[in-house]
Structures are given as structure tokens and as C-alpha cells.
Design a protein around this nucleic acid. Sequence first.
DNA 1: CGCCGCATGTAAGAGGTTACATGATTCG
DNA 2: CGAATCATGTAACCTCTTACATGCGGCG
Lengths: 186, 186
Amino acid sequence: MSRATASRVNPTEFAILGLLAEQPRSGYDIKKEVEERLGHFWSESYGHIYPMLKRLRSRRLITAKPSERRAGRPARQVYAVTAAGRRALTAWFERPPMAPRPRNELLLRLLLGRFAPAGVLRRDVAAYRARAHEGLVRLRAVQLELDAAASDDLDYERVVLAFGIALYTTLGRWCADAEAMLAERG
Amino acid sequence: MSRATASRVNPTEFAILGLLAEQPRSGYDIKKEVEERLGHFWSESYGHIYPMLKRLRSRRLITAKPSERRAGRPARQVYAVTAAGRRALTAWFERPPMAPRPRNELLLRLLLGRFAPAGVLRRDVAAYRARAHEGLVRLRAVQLELDAAASDDLDYERVVLAFGIALYTTLGRWCADAEAMLAERG
DNA sequence: CGCCGCATGTAAGAGGTTACATGATTCG
DNA sequence: CGAATCATGTAACCTCTTACATGCGGCG
């Protein structure tokens, strides 16, 4: 009755749950995995991961157990999803993704460009282009690896990769055009 | 001394400051302007705008005065930037934009695709494509308007518009490919 | 009369980052 | 020995959204 709560879902929670569904990991591993595999379109900080692990555990969506001692490495907790955790993961997929809150500071700056001191926008666009280029280089390297291994399991990785490559390529081209416009002006 | 504070800047603050630099506006106007002109790449809520206006005012970066009565409209506060406000705006341009925290839930879902119930990802990608298409249609309409008015002042608007069009076009294409892959699989 | 658009604001709380605290082990 | 990597966590704080509260005036 009364208020239909339902909706509230925290995507970070499900990023963690999903990574743990792939295989058991520690908080540290999760952070690494996010950086290496999802870095181009996702991010998490320790200060968010650890409290979230605690919370997921208190809801019995994951379990923790200390890993067996590995030669000269500090102790670590390894987390794994429970059956309830997998159900929660499925339920998350069921509801559509939240519309992202758009927030592109570079475009905000450009739109307010008449108030910008000379040169700063060119600098910013150039930096943006450098990032896009760097991203593209890295993703192409990943692409080589993926092309080598022909497995259907990797179709999802491939489609995500294709997104990144298409995006960085487009951004790079746009930056070049934008820089040309800015150069003409100033 | 001790800690070098310096860096902390809130982009919302400067979005507001920038819009007020263009012309004096009320909180309501700011919200409208953000939605209409920046909606594709920026967003703000009343719950953030009003407290921020208060804060900017307490720092003397903006001033407030009640608007003259307009036929049958409620009273409103109109805010305008001070000289100090313009300096703060310039200082903001001086420092490079913050790197955005990447957070694309659709890609997260795709990467965890093996855990998704059948069909949901196709649904999500289709919705994404629909949004891209809708965005593209709207921006093309804006483009027609902009092309009509040939003014250098609008170069910034044009370059931002070009960004949106390039992005939505790329996203639409990628979605089509992604849907093809998903259809093949399931 | 009730709803819609205009208009301003607050309170609670979610979500997330940064900085800090701690400590083991490996490598140069 | 010092630096780097591995590893876990907490506390303070910022940012921002949602839901709520309030009220005017016009229109059907």
C-alpha cells in the first residue's frame, strides 16, 4: 500500500555483484578489475567498494572468507555471490538501466566560450583529443588480443570494445574540427 | 598553511555563474535554460540550483533582486553576476576541466551479459538507440535554426551541436550492430 | 473548483570521493 | 633502508536528487 518504493537500485552494488558472479574476488581485485576491464566506462573507489561489500554481506547476497595464505602476500578476504545474490543480479537486469545524468564539462565550457580567456578552450579540446587518442590506442591493443581468441563467450567483450572504439574515433574527429574552429577565431 | 586546498571546484557553481553572465535570470530560468539548451550534456535540479544560488550570493559572486511585477506572474528573484563573479568564472576557465567519472550502465550490463535473462539486453540497446535517434532529430532541428542565423557569436553553439550530432550518430550505428549481435546469439 | 504552469525553497538521505590509518612483503 | 605493490578499511565531507511544502493566477 501507500508508497511504491521498489525502484531504488544502486548500480555500484550490481557492478560488484556481477564481477563476483564471474568469479570470487577480494575488494582489491574488484578495484583492479574495474580499472583494467571497465576503466573506459566505469569506475569505483575503495572508499565505496569496501562499505558496499559489507552491506552486500549483511544482506546475505555475498559471503566472505579469508583466502588461504599465498607466499608472502598479506591476508585478504575473498567474496563470492550466494544464490540470493544471483537472484538479485537477475532482478537488476530485469529493470531497465537508469538514464545517465549527462555532465560533460568540456561542452559546458564551450557553450560559455565567450567568457573564456584566450587559448584555454584550445588547450582543453587538445587534452580531450589526447585522451581519446590514448583510449583508442589501448582499445586497439585489446582488440588484437580478442581477435586472437575466437570464442563466443567474448561476444559481449567485443561489443563493448566496439563501443569504445567507435566513440573514441568520433570524439577524436570532432576534436580536430573543434580545434580548427577555435584556431580560426583566436 | 599545511594543506594546499586550492583545487576544489564545483562545476554546477560555474554552470550557474556562466548562465548568469550571459544575462540575469531567476532560479527557474536557469533550470529551464539548462534543460533546453544544455539538456543533452548537462543537468541540474532545483534542489541543487537554489541552495547554490544562496551560496554564490553569500560569497558575493552574484546579487539578487526581486523582479518588477509582470502581469499576473508570481514574484521572482533575479540573479546577476558581480565583478567578483566574473573573475571567479575566468579563474574556473583557467584550470582544466575535471576528468569525468565514467559511468555507462548499459556497457556494464553488456559486459556482464552472460548473467542477463534472455531479451533484456536487446531491449536495453533498443531503448538506447531510440534515445540516440530522438536526440539526433532534436539536434538537427536546432541545426536548421542555427544555419539560418549566420553569426560568429554562435560558433560555440555550433561546435557543441556538432558534438551532439556526431555522438548520437555514432551511438545509433553502434546500437544497430550490437542488436545484430544480440539477435544472432539468442 | 481543480488543474496546470509559474515560482521558490527545504530536509533527508543516497551516492561517492578523498584523505587518512595501518601493516605486510618484495625489490633495488 | 626506502619505495612500490599488495591489502583493508574508516571518517569526513561534498555533491546531488527526491520528495515535500507552499502559494499565485489563469483557464476550462
